[in-house]
Design a protein around this nucleic acid. Structure first.
Length: 808
RNA sequence: GCCGCGAUGGCGGAACUGGUAGACGCGCUGGACUUAAAAUCCAGUUGUAGCGAUACAGUGCGAGUUCGAUUCUCGCUCGCGGCACCA
């Protein structure tokens, strides 16, 4: 009776043939740009969790279309980068070919779910016409000095044989393959994202429609900390050590300095360090343990004193000892800290171990909390601090920083945990970096008219591990002429990282075929910014930071009209396996959407996935839940024949309430309650039909119900719509409006409480007043029982809701 | 350790700005149909006591505010996520 396979195939064909989902272009309509994070096509295909976000955006996009918006709802594929390349290597197939296959497979899996994407705007980050503009943006950054060459040690994955950005690590391991990452100096291109750190942080406050959790993750990731740099001159040398601290107010409690072992300063003091042999062997010993072990807070701190080296406290001229120790990181701040064991837990621990002096300088009400037992790290009042005695910590920080600046012994300083973006990969499958190295002219850009600089075919795309990409072996590609002087020159052979292409793809959808400009400015002004963006939370500190960074840069050069790309952001919660674990081949708990669509239908799967629970929340798949969704659709299909209409005010009112609720719930992405509201309506209609053998609503009211169901179950809705004699698609019809008067109830259930406990529930007219309610309640047997011989102290009446009678 | 989020029946979850806790779905129990099963349909389903009306308890734990608390405040416990020797 409900032949989902036939219905779904029929309508998917119909929509395609009629180009139903081409982006609206009516000049007099408002726009709505609703975007999914585009997938990274892998060989494995989609599991049922992937489409959850796509279903939700599809529902909103379809409703917006019916509400009369020009809707931009596109889809594409992000396909450069390590996963695709590693898959290709493993299966000994050219990534170009394997990626094309994966995309075809993904697209097919998406199509059978009945999405309303405008496929005419599909983008593919590996298409030269696309990456032409990825390269163009890179060149603009390079021109502005935001892309620079560096030889600093960076994260190196020994298995993927490439440098990685901080964002590519998980617990100090390569996010792709799980290998321990080493620190290795290689020549690399770096993007100065730190130059945008403050804006990336501050502008989060403007993003009122982003989930707080994501903004918090970005704040953590950027990790701004405000403090001061202070200069400690070294006694008997011309050298000095600059330290970064957020607690300059405690500097008079500084009893020693600690320098990171890798800090180049250490080697430069070689001749002055009396125990150099000991120092050197300590530094060597640290190379044998991994970064994760070394920086684990639970590990006991180690270190070595630099004998013969003394540092001078800029505030009081006191000489303090200098150590190198594993607990100070070279990569943060200045790679050196002042140690105040009385007021810093780590310094306290280290000082205890090495028997170093502990000097308190902050007290609270004249007391020093935990003195002799632990560090006191809160703010308080200064003492033992000379002219600064008596100042509150906060005040002291301001005054003492000023003092440093006046005496040229330091300055105000803001540090970020965020690091510049290591942007080159020593791999094949990425956008070639469009730069040329000329011996005479230095680094020269590939001229804009020569873009795209195409990724050449290569015999072996195995990574070399030498710090050069496989492109380096193609001499007729590498060797070129300098665009400036015409002399012999070599191309840059590093490629861009996986995240490059996704930094601006949402702009390409606006103007997908443009080869004259990144995006036409009129189109950009019309469609930007993205109104609603949906994707996984795992992109919080990767894609979403990178894209905001690029977008702000594009804004600065006038290429886009807004300084933030995504107005509203929602995260889709994971769908776990039936066993509660993440879906994975390893657990054998992967559910393939193709199977679900085949057995129960795309519409049932769509309804079920929305009904499972709150959109942002993770939840487990439950196969019998799909059956429940299907039963609901079958029930609705059974109403299609309206027989024997009998007006029923309650059900008409319920219909209008449901229209209101579903509209609002789609808007706010409370899709689970939208489905349940429709189930309640369906149940009410069903019960009426069974009991009265009549339809409680008219054909036209029923079709309004089908319209609000349509975004959820588009195929079934079209079928019922067509069977009712409509020629055009239901999705070109207008979204129903609810009638305010009809959703008002004539009668309500008035709750009667005695001393806050429910004693009765009376059906009364909605406009009943307190006295009438009390009179009615007093007649109720059960209420009488509770009021018997009691003095009524107070009556609380909430119109339309309840009467609470308080007795003594 | 710091920051954020969460905890409601057997399960997923619902409850608007403090006002009937458990909507809706799954599962389960009983019944109808059937030679039988599946499917379908009907009834029930927080716990305890009671034939029942009803009563008491109940939203992680302990306090508090209130006529009234799943909802607000304070103090915990557990779980999830992010950051983490970041100075």
């Amino acid at each position: 009776m409900y032949n989902h396979q036939e219905i779904e195939k029929k309508w998917q064909n119909n929509w395609r043939v009629n180009n139903l989902y081409l982006t609206g272009q009516d000049a007099d309509k408002p726009k709505y740009y609703i975007l999914d994070m585009f997938p990274y096509p892998s060989g494995a295909g989609l599991h049922v969790g992937h489409p959850k976000g796509y279903i939700a955006t599809d529902i909103l996009a379809r409703m917006r279309k019916m509400q009369g918006y020009n809707v931009l709802h596109p889809m594409g594929f992000d396909a450069f980068g390590l996963p695709a390349e590693n898959y290709a290597l493993k299966n000994k197939v050219n990534p170009k070919i394997s990626v094309a296959e994966s995309i075809a497979h993904f697209k097919n899996q998406l199509e059978i779910l009945g999405f309303s994407y405008d496929w005419s705007r599909e983008v593919n980050t590996t298409d030269p016409n696309y990456y032409k503009w990825t390269q163009w943006i890179f060149l603009k950054m390079w021109e502005k000095g935001l892309a620079f060459e560096s030889n600093e040690p960076i994260n190196w994955c020994p298995s993927c044989k490439t440098g990685l950005a901080n964002e590519d690590l998980e617990d100090g391991k390569c996010e792709r393959c799980g290998s321990e990452v080493e620190q290795k100096p290689i020549r690399q291109w770096v993007l100065k994202i730190t130059e945008y750190a403050d804006r990336l942080l501050n502008d989060l406050d403007k993003l009122v429609d982003w989930e707080e959790s994501i903004k918090e993750m970005q704040r953590n990731w950027i990790g701004r900390s405000e403090g001061a740099e202070a200069v400690f001159n070294l006694a008997d040398t011309k050298e000095k050590v600059t330290v970064f601290t957020t607690r300059i107010d405690t500097i008079l409690g500084c009893t020693y300095l600690v320098i990171a072992p890798e800090n180049t300063l250490v080697a430069s003091l070689k001749d002055k360090i009396e125990n150099w042999a000991e120092v050197e062997s300590y530094i060597t010993s640290l190379k044998n343990i991994t970064e994760i072990e070394r920086t684990s807070a639970s590990k006991e701190k180690t270190g070595v004193k630099l004998k013969g080296i003394k540092a001078i406290n800029p505030f009081n001229g006191e000489e303090v000892e200098v150590f190198i120790a594993d607990y100070v990181l070279n990569s943060y701040g200045t790679g050196a800290v002042m140690a105040v064991p009385a007021h810093d837990e780590r310094d306290y621990e280290f000082a205890k171990k090495f028997g170093l002096r502990i000097k308190s300088v902050v007290s609270i009400n004249g007391q020093i909390p935990f003195e002799g037992k632990a560090a006191f790290t809160d703010d308080g009042t200064l003492f033992n601090s000379g002219e600064f005695d008596g100042l509150a910590s906060g005040e002291a920080r301001r005054i003492m920083t000023n003092w440093l600046e006046e005496n040229k012994l330091g300055k105000r300083k803001i540090n970020y945990r965020l690091k510049d973006w290591v942007f080159s990969r020593q791999r094949y499958w990425g956008e070639p970096i469009p730069l040329i190295h000329c011996e005479k002219c230095g680094v020269v850009a590939v001229p804009e008219e020569e873009l795209p600089l195409k990724l050449p075919d290569v015999e072996s795309y195995e990574p070399t591990g030498t710090g050069e990409s496989p492109l380096a072996s193609i001499s007729d590609w590498v060797n070129t002429k300098c665009p400036k002087c015409g002399g012999e020159a070599k191309r840059e052979t590093n490629t861009m990282p996986q995240w490059a292409g996704s930094c601006w793809y949402y702009l390409r959808y606006i103007d997908p075929k443009n080869d004259k400009a990144l995006v036409d400015s009129n189109l950009e002004k019309y469609w930007s910014p993205v109104d609603f963006y949906v994707g996984g939370a795992e992109h919080a500190t990767r894609h979403l930071i990178y894209a905001r960074f690029w977008h702000k840069f594009l804004f600065d050069i006038g290429a886009v009209s807004h300084d933030e790309p995504f107005t509203k952001l929602k995260n889709v919660g994971l769908i776990m396996g039936e066993d509660g674990r993440k879906m994975s081949k390893r657990w054998g708990n992967v559910v393939n959407p193709d199977d679900v669509v085949h057995a129960s239908g795309a519409d049932s799967m769509r309804v079920y996935e929305m009904f499972m629970g709150p959109f942002e929340q993770a939840c487990s798949w439950n196969t019998s839940g799909v059956i429940g969704a299907r039963k609901f659709l079958e029930k609705i299909l059974s109403f299609a024949e309206v027989k024997n209409y009998q007006e029923n005010k309650k059900i008409i009112s319920l219909l209008h309430k449901t229209i209101k609720k579903v509209t609002e719930d789609i808007e706010s992405f409370h899709l689970n309650t939208a489905v349940s509201a429709m189930m309640i309506l369906a149940n009410a209609i069903y019960d009426y039909r069974i009991k009265e053998n009549a339809s409680p609503i008219t054909q036209s009211d029923f079709l309004d119900f089908i319209k609000i169901l349509a975004p959820f179950a588009p195929h079934l809705a079209e079928e019922i719509w067509e069977q009712s004699g409509n020629q055009e698609s239901i999705f070109v019809s207008l979204w129903p409006q609810y009638d305010k008067d009809l959703i008002k109830d004539e009668n309500i259930n008035l709750v009667i409480q005695v001393n806050g406990k429910l004693r009765a529930s009376l059906e009364v007219a909605a406009e009943i007043n307190a006295d009438e309610a009390f009179a009615l309640a007093s007649q109720n047997d059960n209420v009488k029982k509770w009021l018997d011989n009691q003095e009524v102290v107070k009556k609380i009446f909430v119109p339309g809701k309840l009467l609470n009678i308080v007795v003594k």
